[in-house]
Every structure is written in structure tokens, then in C-alpha cells.
Design a protein around this nucleic acid. Structure first.
Lengths: 237, 237
DNA sequence: TTCGTCCTCCCCATAAATAGCGAGGGCGAA
DNA sequence: TTCGCCCTCGCTATTTATGGGGAGGACGAA
């Protein structure tokens, strides 16, 4: 397995476009001998990209119905660091059961897990493996392959980031220290007068920083500026 | 090496407190036979924790001078997904050179790299390896050990999260879909009337959602609420 | 059924942020 | 040295957000 992973990662490095990445995902599915493989990324500014082996029908329905909002796997993975085993989630409520029925209908296997991956600027991706086998076999599979899959997931994400913007680095404008201070304090919940007091400057000066930051970031207003700065990892809080 | 990593991860699972984690870092440093090892985490709400082998003096100075704001390694790692090789950074400007001189003075080796690790709710950690050896040897070391170190870093972070709050799950309040919609649009730069128009509801209704979200999140104002929601990964944008 | 939560709508007064005009000194790069 | 950027301060007017009070229907869980 380790050898296979190494080979897969090397093949991955050769992918130059999102199409090739999709092809890679399909080949990797065959190599791993599982039912489905999904890489799905959402970047901090709302752009989405997926490379997956699900049927086009299921993908279309998932997107159209905005299932990401109710999919228990997505909801759980967003709050966790560890891989999420699908069978260990709460499928008891009505929406979850309906969703699961639809998923099985669309050809998904009953076993699966999803690996949350987070990148810079609020980027979030899920690398999911889906399979059709007895629970014990699935248990063995996941335990033995998890380290390799974690590594693979991270490399895929890194590759996707690199393809998307030529590097995995977030392009970010430079804010001056004071501008960062100002936005940080606002993000922490202070209003302008409190923030100015904290920085021991006049409220007007603080305002100048906010305006300047807004201008640099191309933000429409303060809320927007803070959100953008957070997305770009400019605020240490 | 792979065997060592496996053993280390198993030992890691047995740590039950932050002190034990610190002890683990020290032992791991000896096992890896490197100069220094650092795990440093910042959670979304500003809490910090570090387990490291640096001298107490250097740590005290780093914290007192708020070096995280100027440390080129930290600044670069925040915008990247891949490990950051210290030697490949820009050390040319004045502050960076002064910082490097101080670091070398404090007993750090010239070689090093840092692995950015991101958890839920805006959590960010750096797992850094520092060593004292010729550049070519360092090159070989990093190349051969990188996969293991990535795995180790993630396990350490997971362990730290688990120790800190009993699980790696983020306790987060539930926002209703409309509340999420409202905050998301505000974060995207729209004002209330525009956001209301987008959602085809009255501006007043939108306001109710924002207030409700503010209340649930315990936020002082809208900017704060958006920042908190982003930190908790509640906004998909 | 009842309770809680969510979604939707309205008015009014006050607090806060935004937009516009200024000004001057410091400090580094070209 | 000049140009640009950063830091600092003041005034005024307008727009926008917040806080307080209401109200009703839908829907799911206990």
C-alpha cells in the first residue's frame, strides 16, 4: 500500500489541470478498489471545485438541492479535525434519513468516511471514500489505509490549490500594522471608540485606518473588510 | 522511520495532558535527533498553546516582543498549505535579518521547516523542526521524513485539540439557515437593504436574523458576529 | 396539543458608521 | 531630494445600523 501511495502521489504531481485531477481521482478509485472517491473543495471566497466519481445525476441533484447544508457528513466534518466515519453519525432525524435514502438510491455504498482538509484563507475541502462491503471489512480497510489516505488527501488538496492559482500561496494585499490592529479589534467585537481607546489613538485616526484597509482590500464596508482580511489570514486575533 | 513514526503516534495517544504532550515533544526531538521541535497552536478565539524545546529565554522574548507578527516563517506559513522551508524565505529586509540574528543567538540551528496545520473554527498550528547541519544533509532529511512528519504533526494537533476540550469537535451554536444566509451576504460586502433584496425578504426581517445570530453567538455587533461565524466555519460563502 | 423554534412583516428613536473636506511629521526607497 | 507610504489629529453632514416595542403563521418535537 505504501508503495501504491508513493506512486499515486508522484502521478498526482504530474497533473496540470483540474480535468487531469479529475482523471487522477478516477484512476485512484480503481487502484484503491473502492466504490467512489470524492475530492470537494470550497475556498474562502465561495468558489467550489469537485473531482469525484459519483454519477452526474447525483451531483446535479446534490448541487440543485443545496444538500451541503443538510448532509450530516459535511456538517460534522466542518467541526472536526479527524476523519468522519459515516456510520458513526446521527442519521436518526427525518432529513438525514431522507438524504441517506437518496444517496443509496444514487449508487453510493453504505460504508464511507470523509477527511476534512483545511487550507489557507478559510479554504475547506473534503476527501471522501465510499465503499460497498460488510462493516468489519470496512473497519479493517480504514484502519490500515488511513495514514496513506490522509497523506493523499493533503497532496490532492495542495495540487488543487496549486493548479487553481499557480501556487498554494494566498495572494494578499499588504495591510499596515495599524490597519491590522484596527480590523482585529473590530473583529473582536469592539466599536470604533473602544478600539481607538485600546490603541490609544483618536477615533478619527482609527477611522482612517479602517477606510484605508477597506480601500486596499477593495471592500464595500467594514464588515466586508473584516471578512476579507480574515479570509486572507491577515488577522491573528 | 515508518516504524518509529507508528510507535511515536501510539505513544502520543497515551498523553492525557498538555504537560505530557510537552514531554512527548521532547522525547520525539531526541528520537528524531534534531536540534529543536516546536508545536505551537492558536485557536480561533486567540488562545495559544505551545509544546517546544526552545530555551525559556527565547520563548519569553518571542512572546514579549510579539515576534509572531514579524517572524517570516509564521507569516509565510499562514498563507501556504505546504511545509515552509526556512531557507527559502526572504530574509533580506531589516526586521527579518535582525530577527534571524536573535534566533541564532538563542541557540537555533540554521536549518528548519514549519508545517502549517489548520483545524476547525479557525484553529491554526505550526509544527516546526529545527536543526544544525549542512544544507545538503538537511535536504535529504526533509525529503525522506516529510510524509512521516506531516502525519505526526496532524496527530499531535488532533491530540492537543482532544486534550483541550475532550474531543476534537468544536462546540458551536446552531444558526438557522436564514441566519447563515444573512451573515454570509453581509460578509460578502452587501449592506442590509441589498442583502434583504437578494433574499427577497424585507429589510426588517433580515435585521431580525442578524440580531438573532448576534444573540446566539454572543456577539457585540454585526462585525463581531460575522467574524465569530467565520471563525467557527459556519459561513460557506 | 402544547411548546419551542423558525420565518415573516411593521414603526420609531437613538447610536454608530460613512463620506467629504482638511492638516502635518517621520521614514525609507528611488 | 523627492515621492510615496505610514501615523497622527480635527470638523461636519448624511447614511446606516441598532435597540425597543409589537404580531401572526408554519412546523416539528415532546
Amino acid at each position: 500500500m505504501q508503495r501504491k501511495t508513493q506512486a499515486a502521489i508522484e502521478a498526482l504531481e504530474a497533473t496540470e489541470s483540474l480535468d487531469e485531477l479529475s482523471g487522477f481521482i478516477h484512476r485512484l478509485r480503481d487502484i484503491l478498489e473502492v466504490e467512489h472517491l470524492v475530492y470537494h473543495a470550497v475556498n474562502g471566497t465561495g468558489g467550489q471545485y469537485a473531482a469525484l466519481t459519483y454519477s452526474a445525476d447525483w451531483v446535479a441533484r446534490y448541487v440543485a438541492e443545496d444538500y451541503a447544508r443538510i448532509d450530516p457528513v459535511v456538517l460534522e466534518a466542518q467541526r472536526r479535525f479527524r476523519p468522519v466515519d459515516w456510520s458513526k453519525l446521527d442519521w436518526s432525524n427525518r432529513t438525514a434519513r431522507a438524504f441517506k435514502a437518496e444517496a443509496l438510491d444514487a449508487g453510493l455504498g453504505r460504508q464511507g468516511f470523509s477527511l476534512p482538509i483545511r487550507g489557507p484563507a478559510g479554504q475547506f475541502a473534503l476527501f471522501s471514500v465510499n465503499h460497498r462491503c460488510p462493516a468489519e471489512e470496512w473497519q479493517r480497510l480504514t484502519e490500515s489505509h488511513l495514514p496513506d489516505l490522509i497523506l493523499l488527501g493533503h497532496h490532492i488538496n495542495q495540487r488543487a490549490l496549486t493548479i487553481e492559482r499557480g501556487s498554494d500561496k494566498v495572494p494578499s494585499c499588504r495591510l499596515s500594522p495599524r490597519e491590522i490592529d484596527a480590523l482585529t479589534l473590530l473583529a473582536a467585537g469592539r466599536n470604533r471608540s473602544q478600539a481607538a481607546e485600546t490603541l490609544t489613538i483618536s477615533e478619527h485616526t482609527l477611522r482612517v485606518y479602517i477606510e484605508s484597509a477597506r480601500f486596499k482590500l477593495g471592500a464595500n464596508n467594514t464588515v466586508h473588510a473584516v471578512a476579507m482580511a480574515m479570509n486572507q489570514g491577515l488577522l491573528l486575533l
